[in-house]
Design a protein around this nucleic acid. Structure first.
Lengths: 201, 201
DNA sequence: TGTACATCAGTGAACGCGCGTTCACTGATGTAC
DNA sequence: TGTACATCAGTGAACGCGCGTTCACTGATGTAC
C-alpha cells in the first residue's frame, strides 16, 4: 500500500480548497475570484488545483453545494434551539449582513448561479429545496404543500431583503430595511393563507 | 464653432455605450463583461471608451442608474395602465425571467452592486428608493410611511423570488415558484399590517 | 480665395497583468526481489 | 540488507488569452487672416 501522506490526506486538502473558495466566492463573487488566490490561501500552488477538480466550474458546483449545506445545518440548529422567529431575525440581522463571506450563499451568489451551467444550477437547487423544506417544517400551515409554498416565498422575501440592505450605502438605512423585512416576514408566517383566502374573495 | 459631428453626437455615442453595457452587465454580470466587447457592440473601438468614462467603475455607476430608471419608467406605465396586481404579475412572469438582459437590474446585479464602491451603491440606492416609492403609491396603506415600508418588503419578495426562479434548472419548477410568489405578494398587498397588528399581539 | 492652424471624436496598437489551464518534474513513501 | 522501481500529492514555470487602461495618431471640420 502506497501512502505518502496519512490516510484521507487528499480529501482533507480538497475540503480545504472548497472551504477557502466558499468564502472568497461569497465575498468577491465567482467571476472576480481567481484560482491562484484561492490555492495560495489554501497553502498550495496553482498546479495542485487540477488533481482535485476538473475545472473552475466544477469547483463552483461543489462549493455552492457545500456552502448551502453548511447554511442548512446552521438553520436546523437555530430552528431547534430558538424557533423560526429567531431564524428570521438572525437572517435579517446586521451580523449576517456584515458576514458576507460566511453568510447565506444564495444571497451572495444567486444571480451568478442562475447564469451558470445546468449542472451547477441543479446542484444548487437540490440544496435549496432541502433548505426550504426545513424552513417549511416550522411553519404553522394546514398542509405540507402550503407550508412548502409559504416557506419558498418567505425565503424569497428574506433573500431579497438582505440583498437590498447590503446594497444600501448607509448602515442605518440597511438596518431599517432589515427590521422592516423582519416585521413583514413575521406577519407572513402568522397568516394562514388558506384560512384568509375567502376574506378577500 | 467647431462641429465635426452634428450637435449632441458625443452624448448620443455615450448613451449608446450605456445602452449596450446595461444589457451585457445584466446578461453576463459586471465582472464577466469586458469593455472591448461592449465597445465593439456599440460600433466603436477600445480607445473610444475613455473620452466618455473615467473607468469601468464609472460606467457601472452610470449604467446601473440608467437601467434602474428605465425599469422605473416601465413600472409607472404598467401601474397607470393596469394597476399593481398587473405589475406584480408582470415582474413574476416567465417573460421577465427569460428577459435577463432587459429585465430588472436589481434582480440581475444586486450582489455585485453591494460589493461595488460607495458611489455606485449610492447611485443605485437613490434609483431604488424612487422605484419603491412609486410602488408605494399604489398600496392601500394607512400612512405614506407604512406604504413605503410595505413596498420595500414587497419588492424584496419579488426580487428574491425572481432570482430563485431563475436559478431553477427546470422551467416548470421556475414557473411554480413565480406563481407561488404572485400568490404571496398579492396577499401581502391586501393585508393591512397595522389593522392586523393587534390580532396577534 | 487660399493657406496655416485648432479642435476633437474616434482609431488601433501597445502596456502590464492576472486569468484558467497544462505539464514535466520533485521527493517522500512504499513494494519487489 | 540493498537496490531498482512504482506511486502520487504537490511544485512551479509556462501556455495563450482577454482584461482595463494609455497614448500617439487620424481625419473631417471649423477659424484666422
Amino acid at each position: 500500500m502506497t501512502m505518502r501522506y496519512e490516510k484521507g490526506h487528499k480529501e482533507t486538502t480538497r475540503h480545504r480548497i472548497i472551504e477557502v473558495a466558499s468564502q472568497r466566492f461569497r465575498q468577491d463573487g465567482v467571476a472576480a475570484s481567481g484560482l491562484s488566490g484561492i490555492m495560495t490561501e489554501a497553502g498550495l500552488t496553482n498546479g495542485a488545483f487540477y488533481p482535485h477538480f476538473e475545472s473552475k466550474e466544477a469547483l463552483v458546483r461543489d462549493t455552492v453545494a457545500y456552502a448551502l449545506n453548511c447554511q442548512h445545518e446552521k438553520l436546523k440548529e437555530t430552528l431547534q434551539k430558538a424557533g423560526i422567529e429567531a431564524a428570521i431575525r438572525g437572517y435579517l440581522s446586521m451580523d449576517h449582513l456584515n458576514a458576507l463571506g460566511k453568510g447565506c450563499p444564495s444571497a451572495a451568489l444567486v444571480p451568478e448561479i442562475a447564469r451558470a451551467s445546468e449542472e451547477t444550477r441543479a446542484a444548487y437547487f437540490t440544496g435549496l429545496e432541502e433548505y426550504v423544506a426545513t424552513l417549511a417544517e416550522y411553519l404553522p400551515e394546514a398542509t405540507p404543500k402550503t407550508a412548502s409554498q409559504r416557506a419558498m416565498a418567505l425565503f424569497g422575501l428574506m433573500l431579497g431583503t438582505l440583498q437590498i440592505a447590503r446594497a444600501a450605502p448607509e448602515p442605518a438605512v440597511a438596518k431599517a430595511i432589515l427590521n422592516n423585512g423582519i416585521k413583514t416576514a413575521l406577519m407572513l408566517i402568522r397568516e394562514n393563507p388558506d384560512a384568509r383566502e375567502e376574506t378577500f374573495r
